[in-house]
Simulated assay, not measured.
Amino acid sequence: MADTTTVEVDTDVHDRLAALAAARGLSLRAYLAELAAAQESQAALARAARAFDEAVVRPGFREGFARDFA
């Protein structure tokens, strides 16, 4: 079994999370794992978008991109 820990939240927050998990047919543990994975993915996507935004202003980037992927 994986290591576990306890997270304390207000009863209202627990009940809301449990209801969201139940609506998806998940345990609260599985739902929280999905939420963590989704947030990690969103953070990675945001980092990639920022890197792309920084790259497109470099001289020659747009031309090279169009040449290689157009």
Rank of each mutant, 00 (worst) to 15 (best):
T11N: 13
A22F: 03
D68R: 03
D53K: 07
E54M: 09
F65V: 06
A22I: 01
A38M: 09
E34L: 13
F69Q: 00
V13E: 14
D12W: 15
A36S: 05
A51I: 06
Q39W: 04
Y31C: 09
V57G: 06
A19P: 00
R29I: 12
A18L: 01
L28T: 00
L32P: 01
G60L: 14
A46G: 04
D15N: 15
F61N: 01
A18I: 04
L28N: 02
A38V: 07
F65H: 07
R16T: 00
L20G: 12
T11E: 15
T4K: 15
A55F: 04
V13C: 14
G60I: 12
Q42D: 12
P59M: 13
E40C: 01
G64H: 03
A30V: 08
R50G: 05
T4C: 10
D53N: 10
V13Y: 09
L17Y: 00
A36L: 02
E54Q: 10
A37W: 07
A2C: 06
A23T: 08
V13N: 13
P59Y: 10
R47Q: 12
D15L: 15
Y31L: 12
A33I: 07
D10W: 12
G25A: 08
A33Y: 08
T11V: 15
Q39H: 08
T11Q: 15
A48K: 11
T6H: 10
F61P: 02
R24V: 08
L45I: 09
A51L: 14
G64N: 06
R58Y: 05
R24S: 10
F69I: 02
R62A: 09
F61A: 03
A22W: 03
